[in-house]
Design a protein around this nucleic acid. Structure first.
Lengths: 126, 126
DNA sequence: TATTCATATGAATGATTCCTCATATGTTCA
DNA sequence: TGAACATATGAGGAATCATTCATATGAATA
């Protein structure tokens, strides 16, 4: 490697070397980052997000959720499984029904922050 | 419609009718819900999430981001476009380079809440 | 115990998506 | 102006995903 290599930004430019190191340290551990992405991804599907939004009003059985979202019971059940796996929703059995509710207050906070962001950007967009 | 129709949960059971109405009112307008999902989905891709995480430490040019994430410049650029479209990141030109930074503090708050959730669930999971 | 209702799940498929490759755009400097 | 660098973008292909359909599990009730 010659000194000429230092001439370009992307290889070894000194100034950026420092920024790169700083940025690398800002990245969390692989496992946490992946799980973080999983959570956002789960909330990024319209069906799953609407499930979460609906559950803000209180617990609902699968059947009612399907009715609210106007979707098949099977489709809703499949997505509830994903949300359960990430501890975004919780369930309890009551006779034949299974009632779902939000698992964690963090979810509400995330929604609130995201809603603020969206409101803000939708306003300034037109 | 006979009274017998009220016997099942999923059709017209009175008790659930009320819960369904309540849940429906908890759903935001279609446009907002879709945009909300878009934001979460954007943050749900590992590459885009890592871009956001890296930018917490300060602005970076595309080339440095590619270096930090160990990905091609093209791949990073494609994802930056998505993030830009949702106002999650902002850019400014400085000579030949384009420097990217986080656009909105809400993003940081969302990350913090999600990280809390993940930390909490990862702990109690084993 | 047999039936009915509520939910869960496996397989299949159509749609979406992220990356790569090639190339275009935009900026600096000789 | 032309060459070199940094970034953006379009097309294409492999992988992922959300729904549907059929069926299994689990609980209540007659």
């Amino acid at each position: 490697m010659t000194d000429l290599d230092f001439a370009t930004c992307c290889d070894e430019h000194e100034i950026h070397e420092c920024a790169i190191t700083r940025a690398r340290q800002a990245l969390p551990a692989e496992r946490q980052a992946q799980r973080l992405a999983d959570v956002f991804k789960a909330m990024g599907d319209p069906t799953r997000l609407r499930i979460i939004l609906a559950l803000r009003a209180g617990e609902l059985c699968v059947c009612d959720l399907a009715e609210v979202l106007n979707m098949s019971q099977s489709a809703v059940s499949h997505q509830l499984r994903v949300l359960r796996g990430l501890h975004l929703v919780r369930n309890r059995r009551e006779g034949k029904e299974v009632l779902y509710s939000l698992d964690d207050d963090h979810v509400i906070s995330m929604l609130a922050q995201a809603a603020d962001h969206v409101r803000h950007t939708l306003e300034t967009e037109e």
